[in-house]
């Protein structure tokens, strides 16, 4: 099926964009915004608002109809295929399949100081009514906090004999988080433990596809909770265990 954005009529292609240009908020500035919008694939761009925002910059709000359409039948995305179970189901399946606790360690690694994401997955309280891993029976969850170096993270993974490594990354400018994520994979490989652990990335701008590309086993973005992560991890661990047997 071919689709286009929907404003108030099917396939009208209506979109809104807003941006700043280093120019004056006058007729020629408006024209510049329109030209830009057309180059972005918008028909009949309508500059609905323009305002000088100081020191030679202007802010534009533009509506228009995009000329492009998307064929949805041919879309392929990498997504986590395992089903999401409830906490009780996860606890039961660990009890049935393992005779020990499953060990998760997590951290915001590198220079990343943001802890909201890793706390939401790991801490007892969880987030938005979804309890964190600390509350799960048969899971031992160690939240190492923020600004944990990759070296320290790997060291702790070995000491704690972690089954699952959770890496929280906030996207900052200049892609520093990507380098940091790749660096962790290299370290794990150098220590010969990459294939002995599940490596999972998470963060507001992390996707499963990106995580796989960087050499992780899975990636979880917004609106994913402890049970999503735990379901994937436990089912994958069971899968690997059976493969070995």
């Amino acid at each position: 099926m071919k689709i286009r954005p929907y404003g108030d009529t099917m396939s009208d292609g209506k979109v809104q964009v807003s941006f700043t240009l280093p120019c004056l908020a006058d007729e020629s500035g408006i024209e510049a915004a329109k030209i830009l919008a057309r180059k972005m694939g918008m028909n009949d761009p309508n500059v609905v608002h323009v305002e000088a925002i100081g020191e030679g910059f202007s802010f534009f709000v533009v509506y228009g109809s995009v000329i492009h359409e998307v064929e949805t039948d041919s879309i392929k995305v990498e997504k986590v295929e395992t089903p999401t179970m409830s906490r009780e189901e996860i606890e039961a399946i660990i009890e049935a399949e393992f005779d020990r606790d499953i060990i998760f360690i997590g951290a915001s690694t590198g220079t990343d100081a943001h802890t909201v994401g890793i706390d939401a997955i790991m801490n007892m309280k969880g987030f938005a009514g979804h309890y964190g891993l600390e509350r799960y029976k048969h899971i031992k969850a160690y939240n190492l906090g923020s600004q944990v170096s990759n070296e320290e993270f790997v060291r702790q993974a070995k000491i704690l004999k972690a089954d699952v490594l959770l890496v929280s990354q906030t996207v900052t400018q200049k892609d520093v988080h990507l380098k940091n994520m790749v660096n962790l994979v290299e370290l794990l490989e150098a220590e010969n433990i990459r294939d002995k652990v599940l490596l999972i990335a998470g963060g507001a701008r992390i996707t499963h596809e990106l995580a796989k590309e960087l050499g992780y086993d899975a990636g979880f973005g917004p609106k994913k909770y402890a049970e999503d992560v735990a379901s994937f991890a436990i089912l994958e661990l069971i899968h690997r265990k059976k493969r070995v047997q």
């Binding site: 807003s18 941006f19 700043t20 305002e51 925002i53 100081g54 910059f57 802010f59 906030t170 996207v171 900052t172 400018q173 507001a204 701008r205």
Partner: peptide
Amino acid sequence: EAIHTPFMQDRFL
């Protein structure tokens, strides 16, 4: 917030 460090227009708004 939580997307990027502020753009000039974010601050303006």
